Simulated scan of single mutants.
Amino acid sequence: MAKNASAKNVAPHLFGSHVSVAGGLAKGVGRAVDVGCDVIQVFTKNNNQWAAKPLVAADVQAWKTALAESGIRHPIAHASYLINLATPKADLFQKSIDSLVMELERGNELELEGLVVHPGAFTTSNEADGIKRIIDAIVETLGRVEPGSCRLLLENTAGQGSCLGHQIDQLSAMIDGGDDSARVGVCLDTCHAFAAGYAINTKAGFAALRQEIDDLLPAGSIAALHLNDSKKPLGSRVDRHEHIGRGEIGLDGFRNVLMDDTLGVIPGYLETEKGNDEETGEDWDVINLRVLRNLISEMA
């Protein structure tokens, strides 16, 4: 029997962006408000460093207060890019687990809903061993972190090099292989799915992806969407984000996602390039959020 992978209790068509928290976590909420976000993604620490100072109680409270006053919902974080749960190197493997434990604890302290992590690359081993390492890492991480608000979200990848998680069956194996699947979910990235070979820009290609999701992922697995167009063509296995509707996926691909009864109601977070449009001077987050909302209006 097919398994429905829809998220639970999520209001329809909520869009936001990954925003900078330079100057403090609460500053990130202000930036999200300024560009018109409904939802927010942040880094809770420097994403290119292993170490992090402990969260200060005053900063945690300032974050919670700013979030409550803003009306922004579904806060999530992205874990460090240094983490590699699939590595065959013992030292890097343990370092990655330790870092993930720290980030998941920070997520609980900040009352986030999810922590997005790239599963990792098997490098000199193989796919089966890499997936086993990821499962072992998830089991150890969840065993060391008390259950809280923050769920571990495995992000599908473009499949560049030996990166795992570019196929739905790989993500399914990672989730099913552990002993606490309720605390593990998926963040589905549109650019990565397209680059991995899922033709979400066509109705048939999108339907094929949806069928895999229904067949392979447990109910409620997909908890977040990364809404990014792709600079590179279908199946390139190269991860290069583009502004919505300006890449190889195009607006039809996003129509397919947003019209879907399951995926369309999951919170969507932009990870597109920051800055301003050279022609209009308008902030790119504002532009991309407007494009997404216009698609919803067209389909209403």
Rank of each mutant, 00 (worst) to 15 (best):
S181N: 10
V286R: 12
A68L: 14
D261G: 11
N47G: 13
G205M: 03
I72T: 04
L270S: 00
Q167I: 09
L263E: 05
I213M: 11
V265M: 14
L164W: 04
I135R: 02
E140G: 08
L14I: 09
L100I: 09
E248S: 11
V116W: 07
D176P: 07
N228I: 06
A2D: 15
R73N: 14
G281R: 03
S236N: 11
V29S: 02
A204N: 14
A196I: 03
I222R: 02
A300M: 12
M259I: 08
D285S: 08
L251C: 01
I249F: 02
S236Q: 09
Y198E: 03
T190Q: 00
L171A: 10
E127P: 08
E279K: 15
G197S: 06
L225Q: 03
N4H: 14
D214I: 06
K3D: 12
Q170K: 11
E105C: 02
I200C: 05
A158E: 00
N47L: 11
Q41P: 01
G71Y: 01
G114E: 01
E273D: 12
A137S: 13
I131D: 00
I296W: 00
M299W: 06
D260N: 09
G197I: 05
L14N: 11
D129V: 12
A300R: 14
A196V: 02
L92D: 06
V257N: 00
I200L: 12
K232E: 14
D252Q: 14
C150R: 04
P119F: 03
R106K: 06
T123Q: 14
N108S: 06
E140Y: 03
D34Q: 13
W284F: 15
N4Q: 14
A182F: 11
F206K: 04
R293N: 09
L142I: 09
N228P: 01
G250Y: 00
M1T: 10
K231A: 12
K203S: 12
G71C: 12
T202K: 11
V101H: 03
I40M: 09
Y269D: 03
G120M: 01
W284P: 05
N108G: 03
V238T: 13
G281A: 07
A158D: 02
D260A: 09
L251Q: 06
A204R: 12
H166R: 08
T124E: 15
F194V: 00
D189F: 00
Y81K: 06
I168C: 05
T124W: 14
I287C: 12
N47F: 11
A199C: 10
R240E: 04
K95Q: 14
A300K: 15
I83V: 10
D91Y: 08
D129Y: 11
L152S: 10
Q160I: 07
D34F: 14
G143I: 04
T262W: 10
W63V: 00
V139F: 06
G24A: 07
I287Q: 06
A195V: 01
I40W: 04
G245W: 02
H166G: 08
S70W: 08
S125H: 07
A207T: 14
K232P: 03
A199P: 00
R293G: 10
A22G: 11
R31K: 13
N156P: 06
P75H: 09
A204E: 15
G177M: 07
